[in-house]
Write a protein that binds this DNA or RNA. Structure first.
Lengths: 355, 355
DNA sequence: GTTAGCAGTCAATGGGCGAGAGTGCTAGCA
DNA sequence: TGCTAGCACTCTCGCCCATTGACTGCTAAC
């Protein structure tokens, strides 16, 4: 494996994967010969195939069948296409323009970029796609405000450097005075101002213990809001076109389809699986031991702002997927999305999107 | 069909559906005779079956097979069990207690009742379940507040009779005076106080035109928030255990599974399909022309507060589903949920759940 | 090192056959 | 008139088997 393959072996291996990707059928020596190597005979191809089989690249489903690529073969194939910089050929300019265009159309409409991107990727490739937003908790509290409303209600506003965080109506006992609200407000500010959400667990409340009497309820309320925010804003995963996988013969049994879908549906699991190569620009994982899903390959691209990875977009499809196209689409979307995020300051408004 | 069936025919039909539900296999005359009608011979049962077939209740997959219930048979079956008030036997007290208990445990945890209910129902019945929250726009605005923050930002708070609605940070030009904010606040209040969200489209702004200059931006902002709220708070549909359907032989082909799942995934479509019998306490729909999904039955229960339907919970499963159990569970959940909603005033807090 | 040719292997297909399940019909009985 | 026993008929399903076709691996010759 570590040994370099001969040029002809490379050509044959590449041809075999190419053919297998398009047909889905075991590839015979004469297929390769007639379509890729007319200068030699099929017998020659056969002996090369034997050698490749011995090297662990390919295998035969049974004695009298053609050859099928193994994991190693796909790896070789992916390397060869990404090395040769052939993404240029994978997507035409029109396709690129079209995809971009559709993405921005959608973006205007839904606001949620991950959703839009997942949809576009799935549509463009015809495979199941996903987007993961790695949520950052690097948020600094700028201001906490207790705003009295009519009746005995009040609302807590938490303003951060990234936007407004959360609000919640709470009930005050009916006989509170305006003064109380102001004191509480300033106390809350004293406690929380300048704090970072990442350190939530470390908030040391003992130091301000003395002043707390009478305000404990409100303090708890605010902490609760923050905790809920942190816990509910873990990485978000959106999946698009989950059913598209069922179009491929790899998943023609309901059993297999079911296990596939249940893995995909488990968002936490997905986030977990893909967290490993979060920082890799473009990663390809093939086979169950690699990615947790049987008979599948997962291609992911990480999109960044500056050096920070803010999310991943990817495709999950059969091992024999159209890697050229997928890689092309993902590269495109990666760049597009990075640019979009970079351009717009992101506000963490609570609830509705702001468009 | 309009004609009453003889007692024996009823008994046989009921037995047939019963057997078919448990076995999934065509039911033979001797099956019925040995397990339900030992007092007569199988030949007698056979002639009755012929008659029932002629009446359109049942059919034979092929000449030498047993009988299989048709839509009419299921309808008869459902009617007979709900008429005889036999829900009592469907769920034991322990089961009832267990389900309730699990529901309340979950409720504490996620807060979102629909999700909890859907999960419980799906677990208890082993079928795909769903909950629909019919969102009511009958919300009256009590107060609109413009709260200035540090810097030049401000936030709009909209308080309604059902809780707090939405908030959004907006930028004011840096040179606004405190006075401006106050005036804006009172103007907004004047415009929106007492209005109902249902009439959003009819808000007639011309009458207050004169005062608007200088506040147009803020006014637009508020209207935008309201519009977004209304449009994003359409009926919400949650589905649980979508894959459970694939366990049943009705959906053993990937083709069928796929169409089933794609119907289920389309939340809008679901909301649409089920909106017809929103007000029906307990509805059973069998067959494609009835419910849009082939080879399926849908059972829904509407839960209400007072007279208003606030949501529906339901099960979607194979036609031959365990109606007794399903109806039992749905009745239980319907009552439980109605009680829960009734008990707690519902706050429409924006974003996070409140607990 | 390459090729042509040939024998061997295996999956897939389809026909034929028997077993099993269940019905419909008919004749006889209460 | 309604019920029953018995029997012939029908249809599906699983099984075996032979045939076909698609490849390969090997070998001998170039």
């Amino acid at each position: 494996m570590s040994k370099e393959l001969s040029e002809r072996k490379k050509k044959i291996l590449h041809a075999l994967v190419d053919l297998y990707i398009t047909t889905g059928q075991p590839v015979s020596s004469s297929d390769i010969q007639s379509k890729y190597l007319p200068e030699v005979s099929s017998a020659t191809v056969r002996s090369e195939l034997s050698a490749l089989e011995a090297l662990g690249y390919i295998e035969q489903p049974h004695t009298s069948a053609g050859r099928v690529p193994l994991k190693e073969a796909y790896k070789f194939y992916v390397d060869s296409i990404s090395a040769s910089g052939s993404e240029a050929t994978a997507l035409t300019d029109q396709e690129t323009a079209f995809i971009r265009d559709r993405f921005f159309k959608r973006l205007e409409h839904i606001e949620d970029m991950s959703k839009a991107a997942a949809k576009i990727i799935s549509d463009a490739t015809n495979y199941t796609s996903f987007c993961i937003e790695r949520s950052s908790m690097d948020i600094e509290i700028e201001e906490v405000k207790l705003v009295p409303l009519k009746g005995s209600k009040a609302v807590v506003l938490i303003v951060t450097d990234k936007g407004m965080l959360a609000n919640k109506a709470i009930d005050l006992s009916p006989d509170v005075k305006e003064e109380y609200v102001e004191t509480a407000s300033s106390l809350l500010n004293k406690i929380f101002q300048g704090r970072n959400l990442m350190d939530l667990e470390n908030f040391d409340l003992s130091e301000i213990d003395v002043e707390i009497q009478g305000f404990k309820d409100i303090l708890d309320e605010v902490l609760k809001i923050l905790r809920i925010y942190v816990s509910s804003h873990s990485d978000t995963v959106v999946v698009e076109g989950a059913l598209k996988m069922l179009d491929y013969p790899e998943y023609s049994s309901v059993e297999d389809a079911k296990t596939f879908l249940s893995v995909i549906e488990d968002r936490e699991n997905m986030a977990q699986i893909l967290s490993d190569d979060g920082s890799i620009e473009l990663s390809v994982r093939i086979g169950k031991e690699d990615n947790g899903v049987d008979k599948c390959a997962i291609v992911t691209a990480a999109y960044k702002v500056g050096d920070e990875v803010v999310g991943q977009a990817g495709v999950i499809g059969p091992e024999r997927m159209d890697y050229k196209k997928v890689i092309g689409v993902l590269e495109l979307m990666k760049n597009t999305m990075s640019a979009v995020i970079d351009g717009s300051t992101k506000h963490i408004t609570d609830g509705h999107s702001e468009d």
